[in-house]
Amino acid sequence: MSQPTSRRGLLFGGAAVGATALLAACTSNEPAEAKEEKNDAAPAAEESGKHVTIGFAGPQADHGWLNAINVQAAQRAKKYSDITLEKTEGSNDTATQIGQIDTLINKKVDVLVILPADGKALTQAGLKAMRAGIPVVNLDRIFDTPQAYRCWVGGDNYGMGLNAGHYIGEKLKDKKNAKVIELSGPDSLELTKQRTQGFDDALKNYPNIKKVARQAADFTVESGQAKMAQLLQAQKSFDACWNHDDDQGVGALRAIDQAGRDGFLMVGGAGARSAMDHIKADDGVLKATVLYPPTMAASAIDLARALGQGKGISGLSESEIPTQLTLYSAVVDKDNIDQYLPNGFK
């Protein structure tokens, strides 16, 4: 462990190693499988240390995944006797979230964890905190400049698409002239473009497979149902569908049931409990989902605590925490569903 250091020195001095790692590597020396199976396992560095007040600012929990982010952060903080968590009221309004972050800065919290409603729009808030000597853990939606955070932790959107494409590709590799469709998220979001790019790049490895249609929904049940209905009407037959988001997938499955369609496999995205329940029951076309783990919020709390106490990460040689932590997007199907089911979000 490093010797105690000033917050300003921690922010702007020294060489912090950048890392792309599994979520479990951040918090434990246990194998990744054990960590994913039960997220309530004791965090690393369990021994109490210097008390740390962590400010947490996130968007409104108007989506199952965002609600799971809040739950994961709060539950993780409760596991430490040396943490006080100061949470803001979630908001999707940029001005409101900036004001909430200003309040946390004025309270002189030790570390800030920020999941911005809009990474670009909230960059100045991150910079303000860093310049005030408060290290920032930027959660998922990244700020415009690395000067606005000490550490970024988030999911791998490109990897989601890549793993979905390879999963479908392996299932269809022996089928001649296989056809797939894609139900994406909003095209206005960079994450959607990354997921689609990963999917398309994976399919290039399977020359027998052609993507024949794509529709963009907006991560809601209603849009998923409407856009899936359009795809089903336009495509009388296909072999697989990748849906970017399990919440909109609820609507997509509804459209599939109403149309009486089957004979293809569907892969979802994010890791909702409803999707996992269907996968375990094997009661329809949904055969797998690709994770975008909300457990990243628990890791953000671990990282914030380490920053506040001037510590590194158990299992790594460096005395400082990494500058980046990208979570792996595992594919969950009937073969490993029991391992991941406890972390399915509602």
Rank of each mutant, 00 (worst) to 15 (best):
residue 156 D to M: 01
residue 131 R to M: 08
residue 136 V to Q: 08
residue 93 D to L: 07
residue 166 H to K: 10
residue 138 N to D: 10
residue 164 A to I: 06
residue 165 G to T: 08
residue 112 L to S: 13
residue 178 A to L: 13
residue 149 Y to S: 06
residue 132 A to M: 05
residue 138 N to P: 03
residue 143 F to S: 00
residue 90 G to V: 03
residue 160 M to P: 02
residue 172 L to P: 02
residue 173 K to D: 06
residue 110 D to L: 07
residue 132 A to Y: 09
residue 145 T to S: 15
residue 181 I to E: 04
residue 158 Y to D: 00
residue 168 I to A: 02
residue 170 E to R: 13
residue 127 L to P: 09
residue 148 A to N: 06
residue 170 E to M: 04
residue 162 L to W: 13
residue 146 P to A: 09
residue 168 I to D: 00
residue 139 L to C: 09
residue 132 A to E: 15
residue 97 Q to G: 12
residue 158 Y to K: 01
residue 191 L to E: 14
residue 195 R to K: 14
residue 131 R to N: 15
residue 100 Q to W: 09
residue 144 D to C: 06
residue 139 L to I: 11
residue 171 K to D: 04
residue 110 D to N: 11
residue 195 R to P: 02
residue 156 D to T: 10
residue 199 F to L: 10
residue 156 D to W: 03
residue 114 I to G: 06
residue 160 M to F: 12
residue 195 R to M: 11
residue 177 N to T: 06
residue 111 V to C: 10
residue 142 I to T: 15
residue 150 R to C: 14
residue 90 G to M: 02
residue 127 L to Y: 11
residue 120 K to D: 07
residue 98 I to Q: 14
residue 183 L to M: 12
residue 152 W to P: 01
residue 136 V to Y: 12
residue 129 A to H: 13
residue 162 L to A: 03
residue 150 R to I: 02
residue 190 E to C: 00
residue 110 D to F: 06
residue 142 I to C: 02
residue 183 L to D: 04
residue 179 K to S: 13
residue 103 T to E: 14
residue 169 G to N: 04
residue 166 H to F: 08
residue 165 G to Q: 09
residue 149 Y to C: 03
residue 146 P to C: 09
residue 164 A to G: 09
residue 134 I to R: 07
residue 181 I to K: 02
residue 90 G to T: 06
residue 142 I to D: 07
residue 109 V to F: 01
residue 101 I to P: 08
residue 116 P to Q: 03
residue 189 L to R: 08
residue 129 A to I: 11
residue 162 L to M: 07
residue 90 G to W: 07
residue 91 S to K: 02
residue 135 P to T: 12
residue 189 L to F: 14
residue 163 N to E: 15
residue 180 V to W: 03
residue 168 I to L: 14
residue 135 P to Y: 10
